[in-house]
């Protein structure tokens, strides 16, 4: 076994050249998949304009836009980081409970409604961000607020 991971072999090339200095630096998001899934609706609630800007830029670039949309992309990253920072600051306990539940249940939101309810409440009380499911029917109770749940593993909601 080689002690050092290869930088270049027949499958991958890891290019460690950093971005040039004329591109402003922004730290990448460090949260992994389950915390991002848990925070996704709050990121959406605060960052919708930035995200929409970025998607419009990418759409108008017709399949290109990696360089042209970097400015919008940095805004998206910064906004998501601000949401994660606030959730970590005010609701860390509920947040951890929810994403650990998600991670243990195949990242299916409906398995973790009780943890989600307390997280939603904490985030709404402290950050004034509310979970709204985009495109959900207007005349029905959204799925995460229903009193009765019919589809989850027994004892997990």
């Amino acid at each position: 076994m080689a002690a050092r991971q290869p930088r270049f072999n027949q499958q991958v090339l890891i290019d460690t050249t950093p971005l040039p200095d004329d591109i402003p630096k922004v730290k990448e998001i460090g949260a992994s998949s389950a915390p991002l899934m848990s925070a996704s609706f709050f990121i959406g609630a605060r960052c919708k304009p930035y995200n929409d800007d970025y998607m419009v830029c990418k759409t108008e670039a017709n399949g290109k836009g990696e360089l042209e949309c970097m400015k919008e992309g940095r805004k998206v990253t910064r906004c998501a980081a601000s949401v994660l920072e606030d959730i970590n600051k005010y609701c860390l306990e509920d947040f951890r409970k929810h994403w650990q539940c998600l991670d243990n249940n195949n990242q299916q939101l409906w398995q973790c409604r009780s943890a989600e309810r307390s997280l939603n409440k904490c985030v709404f009380d402290n950050l004034k961000l509310e979970k709204v499911i985009p495109g959900a029917p207007e005349n029905e109770v959204p799925v995460h607020l229903r009193k009765r749940q019919i589809f989850a593993h027994p004892g997990r909601h």
């Binding site: 290019d15 460690t16 950093p18 730290k27 947040f95 991670d103």
Partner: peptide
């Protein structure tokens, strides 16, 4: 899994082609 806000150093350049 981790809920850090910022990625560790070197994360932005270790995505393989």
């Amino acid at each position: 899994q981790t809920d850090r806000v910022a990625a560790p150093a070197g994360f932005e350049v270790n995505n393989p082609w």
